[in-house]
Amino acid sequence: MMKKMKLVILLSLIIVVSAFGKGKGWIDLFNGGNLDGWVQKNGEATYWVDHGAIVGKTAKGSPNSFLCTEKEYGDFVLEFEVKLYDNELNSGVQIRSTTKEPEGDELVGRVNGPQVEIEASGENGAESGYLYGEACGGWMTPEKDRVPHKAFKDGEWNSYKIVAKGARIQTWVNGKMISDLVDNKKYKSHPKGFIGLQVHGVGDRGPFRVAWKNLRIKEMN
């Protein structure tokens, strides 16, 4: 009996240690209850918390809006889930972004930096997971590599993983690798910055909604 009890205790300890190890180094960016640690930049979209998710809704006539972390990050692994409630709305998540233009002052105050695309697949596939330079040069992923795909599941929650290490940025959508890009120029201009949740401007259309949950990050040395 004692041997069985010791075995049960040992197995329990192994399970606990294993679970702890899996979560080691991860930091939740969103507490599930309010927007503490986040600040809105640009635009007039509305952000709020609903059932453990951050929801963003478009505002007519508004430019792109961004809900941004107060803290900046350089090299990291970022994971989150995202859902487009309206396929007409495309979105994105900013990484290593800033409101300061490194080569002038004409864009000071405007969010700029690498963005990981969020877009409904539709019938023909789309560009979810590819990299775009928001207010800093346009597409980072070369046109020849931006092959439309259907890894993004329309109307459902989709898991994203982003690994940014030096000039290399890798992305996955629902477990499928989408992009493996090395961009030394962009790394030189944007080596670190905030994470930002984009609600894209839609002119007079809408309102449209997008939501994010389970946002967590692991910084790398």
Rank of each mutant, 00 (worst) to 15 (best):
T141N: 06
T58I: 01
K150G: 10
L84W: 08
L7F: 13
Y160N: 04
L181W: 01
V202W: 07
S65Y: 05
D145W: 02
E119R: 08
T58L: 08
E123F: 03
E44G: 11
E72D: 11
H190P: 06
V173I: 13
I9N: 00
Y73G: 02
Y187S: 01
L29R: 03
V163Q: 12
P148L: 01
S189H: 10
V199P: 06
D36Q: 10
T69Y: 00
V182W: 04
A151M: 12
F66M: 10
W26M: 04
K192N: 13
G104A: 09
R216W: 09
F30A: 04
P63N: 07
L181P: 03
H149Y: 00
H51T: 13
L13S: 11
D154I: 13
L7K: 08
P191F: 07
W172V: 07
L35A: 12
V55C: 07
N221M: 12
G43L: 09
E81K: 00
A151L: 08
K144Q: 10
C68A: 13
G196M: 06
S12N: 09
I169V: 15
V93K: 02
N34C: 05
L13C: 14
S18F: 14
W26N: 00
A19L: 14
C68I: 04
W157P: 03
V39C: 02
H51M: 13
L13T: 14
H149G: 05
D183P: 05
E106W: 14
K71E: 13
P102S: 08
V49H: 03
V199E: 07
K186S: 10
T99Y: 06
V82D: 00
N34P: 06
N174D: 05
I178W: 04
L107E: 07
G155M: 12
E156Q: 14
C136M: 11
I15A: 15
V82N: 12
Y85P: 00
L10P: 00
H200W: 10
V82G: 05
K100A: 12
I162Y: 09
K41C: 07
G137I: 04
F20N: 11
E81W: 03
V17W: 08
V210E: 02
